[in-house]
């Protein structure tokens, strides 16, 4: 077994990466099962594919969490809820 202790793994960070890789994998499965990833123009008036929308959602979620940490002492779980809402909005409208 390779020694990965230098990477200082923790369960929360492992789950974080598992979720990200699963999302990428799920996008592949989604496109295979129901093709439709061709570019389209949404409310922001620029072309996005499904992959672009995933990127925008993830990047936006990162900034939502950073903004949350900067602005309030409340739990990050609320920020996760806002990010989930943002995800849905991006995939529906952008």
């Amino acid at each position: 077994m390779i020694d990965l202790s230098w990477m200082a793994w923790t369960w929360p960070t492992a789950i974080f990466f598992i979720v990200i890789f699963s999302l990428i994998l799920a996008m592949g499965v989604w496109e295979y099962a129901s093709p439709g990833g061709a570019p389209r123009i949404g409310i922001l008036r620029f072309e996005t594919t499904r992959g672009d929308r995933l990127f925008v959602s993830l990047l936006g979620s990162a900034f939502i969490c950073l903004g949350w940490l900067w602005a309030t002492d409340l739990s990050l779980w609320y920020a996760l809820g806002v990010s989930a809402l943002f995800f849905i909005l991006v995939f529906r409208l952008v």
Partner: peptide, 24 residues
């Protein structure tokens, strides 16, 4: 974020296209 904004703005400059396609 800033690189993505630069890239998106510059590749879409002048392309004022109508909305296409619906929600997922």
């Amino acid at each position: 974020l800033l690189s993505w904004i630069f890239y998106t703005v510059m590749t879409n400059a002048g392309n004022d296209k109508p909305m296409t396609g619906g929600g997922e």
